[in-house]
Design a protein around this nucleic acid. Structure first.
Length: 456
RNA sequence: GGCGCGAUAGCAAAGCGGUUAUGCACUGGAUUGCAAAUCCACGUAGGCCGGUUCGACUCCGGCUCGCGCCUCCA
């Protein structure tokens, strides 16, 4: 089976055929860095991490571009509130983002361009659009995109211009020719961050930077453009309008959008205020647990975060790690068997992680049922297929004992005490020791080699 | 108002026009001094109403409910 991807643009699954066989150019809209990332951000970027990992796994050479938006109204506002230069703020939160993503096993993109490093490209693009009459400058120095001039407007999101206007909550801006026109270049006040331009000092609008950076890194037409669900409109629609008007060529062939993360019934979002940050969660749970929770549902569907979501993900991972701990894990390579076939068929079908994980659970059962070389080989396969998902690479004992804090020495003492009691057939004492440990959340496991423990 | 998505067993979550999804939880058994881990057994789930079909959770229509986008948002 070949890789099939659901294309938002055509609203169907399509066989994926890169422009250049074996190579993939992929652009994903990244973070605007003025605050810590929340779990909803993790959901989206994890989805694309998985997509990139899998494409590389099947031999595609992926050039993965994920930008950082480092200039925008919120950044300026927050920097002012803090009384710090905006680039200071931006660096701080870009670093925080990378730290958080690292813990979730989200691999770094091939390139991470920043808007402020592409001001020249942005200005050139705006100039081209003005020359082609897709954009116009107004007296105060703003430049707007003439939305009605672009025939294909709405093709990605399914919006119809006249209906947008009818229900528009956009205030009428007297300088715009049309209320739906959006800003490409914003005039700046002298005290705000700004760059020189043919239209006076100013800064780029939000949508234009992605058009400039994607084309810059990947060419006029590239394979995949992705982003969070809330970027489909207007951001991605505007990117298409800008780029295709400027180049006269197709912008991106395949559009991928991740599903939203919900807290209860509602989307987790900054504007609703119903979010918690990745680092809040990482104080209580291992990054792999968060990762496994988020990849346990399909990347395009909504995921609801519930009180027990992470505990459930933890329990599932424990099943994997218990198997890996018991087995003598062989070399991490794939085996041509039904588990591999199911795993790959699922992933080839629009990155169906729940189905792929189901195959892995069946493989776990097989690992637990077998012994010796056969078991070692299957356990190696489990570890290998897990690596494709960015999971199961931790030391099993470390994973299973995580959260025990500094109690390890005390636990070993208690275990020694219990083993002595058992030898003396003093089962009452042995059980009392174990009960004391259980009360602290420590579970003992007697194995042929002795006694091991894990955090419950 | 416009456009779109979803509703699966106690919980989470997939595929599929007819044959066990999967995980957790539950129950019984094996194993264990007792446990834990593991294995075996165990659930006629598919919002409601029609239609198509020999047969529908799966296709079509309607309804109800929930959600998203249309404003910055991953």
């Amino acid at each position: 089976m070949t890789l099939h991807i659901f294309n938002t643009l055509t609203r169907q699954k399509e066989e994926f055929k890169p422009l250049v066989p074996g190579k993939v150019g992929m652009y994903v809209c990244g973070m605007t860095v003025y605050d810590y990332c929340h779990l909803g951000h993790a959901r989206a970027f994890l989805a694309f991490d998985l997509i990139v990992r899998y494409m590389r796994h099947i031999g595609l050479d992926v050039n993965y571009i994920r930008n950082v938006t480092d200039i925008d109204d919120k950044i300026i506002q927050r920097a002012n509130e803090n009384g710090e230069p905006f680039l200071n703020l931006v660096d701080r939160f870009a670093n925080a983002m990378n730290d958080d993503f690292d813990q979730l096993g989200i691999e770094r993109p091939t390139h991470e361009p920043r808007a402020t490093a592409h001001i020249d490209d942005i200005i050139k693009l705006v100039q081209t659009l003005i020359e082609k009459e897709y954009a116009y400058a107004v007296p105060n120095g703003d430049v707007y995109y003439r939305v009605r001039k672009f025939e294909g407007y709405g093709k990605l999101s399914g919006k119809v211009l006249d209906e947008l206007e009818a229900g528009s909550r956009v205030g009428v801006d007297s300088d715009k020719e049309d209320p739906l026109d959006f800003v490409l270049w914003k005039a700046a006040k002298p005290e705000e961050p700004h760059w020189d331009s043919p239209w006076g000092i100013g800064r780029p609008g939000w949508h234009i930077e992605c058009s400039a950076m994607s084309t810059c890194c990947l060419g006029d037409t590239f394979d995949i453009h992705g982003g969070g669900p809330d970027l489909k409109f207007p951001h991605h629609e505007n990117e298409i309008a800008q780029s295709e008007a400027a180049t006269g060529k197709t912008y991106a062939n395949t559009w991928i959008h991740a599903g939203a993360l919900r807290l209860g019934a509602e989307k987790m979002s900054k504007s609703l205020g119903n979010f918690f940050t990745i680092r809040d969660i990482l104080e209580k749970y291992d990054g792999e647990v968060v990762r496994f929770f988020l990849i346990s549902s399909h990347y395009r569907s909504h995921v609801s975060y519930l009180d027990n979501s992470l505990d459930e993900a933890q329990a599932k991972l424990e099943r994997f790690y218990n198997a890996l701990q018991e087995a003598n894990v062989g070399e991490a390579v794939d085996i041509d068997n039904e588990y591999s076939k199911r795993f790959h068929a699922a992933m080839d079908d629009d990155f169906n992680t729940p189905e792929a994980i189901a195959a892995l659970f069946d493989l776990v059962r097989e690992v637990n049922k077998t012994t010796g070389d056969e078991q070692a080989a299957l356990a190696g396969q489990l570890k290998y297929l897990g690596s494709v998902l960015g999971c199961l690479q931790a030391d099993p004992q470390t994973f299973l004992q995580a959260g025990a804090g500094d109690d390890a020495a005390w636990i070993e003492e208690m275990i020694a005490k219990r083993i002595a009691a058992k030898k003396a057939k003093d089962f009452a004492t042995a059980d009392a020791v174990r009960d004391e440990l259980v009360a602290k959340g420590i579970v003992l496991k007697d194995v042929p080699e002795g006694t091991s423990w894990s955090k419950s």
